[in-house]
Structures are given as C-alpha cells and as structure tokens.
Write a protein that binds this DNA or RNA. Sequence first.
DNA 1: ATGGCTACGATCCGTAGA
Length: 270
Amino acid sequence: MKLATWNVNSLKVRLPHLTDWLAGAQPDVVCLQELKSEDAKFPRAELQASGFECAVSGQKTYNGVAILSRAPLLEVSTGIPGFPDEQRRVIAATAAQVRVVCVYCPNGQAVGSEKYAYKLRWFAALRDYLAAELARHPQLAVAGDFNVAPEDRDVHDPKAWEGQVHVSEAERAAWRALLELGLTDSFRLFEQPEKVFSWWDYRMLAFRRNAGLRIDQILVSADLARRCTACSIDKAPRKLERPSDHAPVIAEFSWDQSISSYAGSVRNST
DNA sequence: ATGGCTACGATCCGTAGA
C-alpha cells in the first residue's frame, strides 16, 4: 500500500501534474494540501477517472485539503474537534483499515508574529486531537505539509535559516510533541541520502541549487511503522513546467494479512 | 542585496506563501 502527500499549491493549476503523477506513481491513498479552491470546483470526475474517490475540505483562495483513495473512505471528518477555525487545514478518513489524517499546518509567517502564535496554538490542538485519534486507531498515519523542518539536516543552509520561521525551537518542539504521542517520521525509518528536501522556493533558482527544506512528512503510529517498507520524496514533478513548489512524499507499507480482502479490492479497483 | 516567484482576486497592485 502506497500512501503519499503533496502540497499542490492550487489544484486547478496542478491537476494535469497530479493526474500524470497518479498514473505513474500508482499511490493507493493521497493527501493533498493547498487546493486553493471551493469544494464545488473540486475535479471529482477527473480523479474518479484516475481511480480515486475523494474526501474534500476546501475554501476559496487559501488552504484546502483532500484525501484521495482507491479503497472506500470511511468515517470522514474535517477540522480539529474543539478548535474552531475558518481555515480548512485538516481532513481525516479511514482507508483500508488505516486512519489517515491529512494536515496543512500553518506557515507562521515570522517568529513573534500573530500568525506564528496561531501556528503554535494550532499545533497544540493538533497534538491533543492526534492523541485521541491514536487511542481509537492503532494504525494511524498523519501526512501533510507540517511547515516545520524538524532538524538541521532537513535544511539546506541551517546557518542562514537559524531562528527563522519553520526551524525555530518552539516550532520544532511542537513538531516533536507529535512524535512523543508515539508517532514516527517514516522518512527517518530508512537510510536516506543527504540534502533531501520537499520544498524549494520559486525564487533564487532554489530548486536548481537544491536550496530546500524538508517540511512535508508522513508520521506513522508504531503499528504502521512496523509495516513501513520505504519512504522517499519524488522530485520529478518539481522539474516540470509550472510546478508546485512542493514535491510529493511517498511511504510504502506491507499489506496486513488480516485485511488482505481489502488489499485485493484496492489492487483490483483500477 | 531582505530582493528574486507564483497564485489568487481583485486590477493596472496587494496579500500570502515558505
């Protein structure tokens, strides 16, 4: 089972990239962020033609998240319970016995700003929400754009970024607090090359210089970590014309024997 | 050098992203 996450930075603009990528990478579940469009404009038919059903929580101009899945999406929920928020940043659903939480964490703009304070409040609420989800769902994945580079090795130039938003100690502590719930960064379960990133600024020829950050992650519960066989970042879509500034992250899981009937239905659904 | 792209929704530029 392949689970992916991709901040597409406008689904309207990126739909051709997305459908091409779905056909090539063959993921089973995909978390999308920054749709930047209303639910009524979601390209449900096109994605259905690619073999996916969709759960969507979008809004005009900003934010917006969705989960695509070849298997049925059950128990769909949006937002963080007890944390009222106009900004559509969270959607969750169960696919093939795995609870999938798709997140678009706040950017934070600048350390000390109002948006930074919102980011930290938001992470605290996410933590409490995930604690409750973990209690109910031993097989849990939290995939998305966390807008935090967890360690210096996730930053192309740690010195230049020191203390900045995305790498500040308070943000990293908020991110680590998610791991303290019993989640693991699936990317770090495996030996990885140095300087692998998931986002590169559109400016400054950043992609060509590999001046990026690894801010998109797939966190997994202990049960799911045991089944995780690979995690990588696919830079190919970032090389296309008019790309998203983010690249997709993909984690692969061995099929649980106890849900082999689900596995069969997923595999045959294309 | 604190800029430099890109997308959006409104114009003939501002806001936001990261």
